Amino acid sequence: MMRQFLVLIGLVLLTISAAKAGPNDDAVAARASWEQVYNAGDADKFAALYTKDAMLFGSTAQLFTGTDGARTYFSKLPAGIKVKMGDQQAIAAGPDVVLSSGFADFTLPNGTVLPFRLTLAFVKVDGKWRVAQHHGSPLPK
């Protein structure tokens, strides 16, 4: 009986914690996952972060679409670039949509740091946050 009570209390506390998680928390977690996958250098894992109909404007002039477009974009980048997410802001546009804008530093293999503005629109698909829209641009001087 006591064990069932403790399990029930634990579930209530988890529910309260989940309810308190706001759009910024969701965006921080989704951007951290994006950063980790980007730095791993795996185009297939990168593409899996995007929706099947995603739109991606990265560091090139071309608009890439869908998971195949995300894979193509990532495959065309020079190897060894790393990213570090910076400050960000996020808002919920709905229960399963989070809009996130902020900063990211991309470091080239030679050590050159390229500061960028990065906007990502996340949607929840099958319980996981996926990128539906991505726009990156160099930080103006």
Rank of each mutant, 00 (worst) to 15 (best):
M2V: 08
R3M: 08
R3I: 08
F5R: 13
I9A: 08
G10T: 02
L11D: 05
L13I: 04
L13Y: 04
T15Y: 07
I16P: 03
I16R: 05
A18M: 08
A18D: 08
G22R: 00
P23N: 02
W34R: 14
W34H: 15
Q36V: 12
N39A: 00
A40G: 15
G41Q: 01
D42P: 04
F46D: 06
F46V: 14
F46W: 11
A47L: 00
Y50G: 14
T51C: 05
L56G: 09
L56N: 12
L56I: 11
S59E: 12
A61N: 13
Q62L: 09
T65G: 09
T67Y: 03
T67M: 07
F74H: 10
S75C: 06
L77E: 13
A79I: 12
G80M: 01
D87L: 12
Q88D: 10
I91Y: 01
A92R: 02
A92W: 03
A92Q: 02
A92S: 11
A93T: 04
G94C: 01
P95L: 07
V97C: 06
V98Y: 00
A104D: 10
A104Q: 14
F106R: 09
L108N: 10
T112M: 08
V113Q: 07
R117E: 09
L120I: 11
A121E: 12
V123F: 06
V123K: 06
K124H: 03
V125D: 14
A132V: 13
H134W: 03
H134T: 01
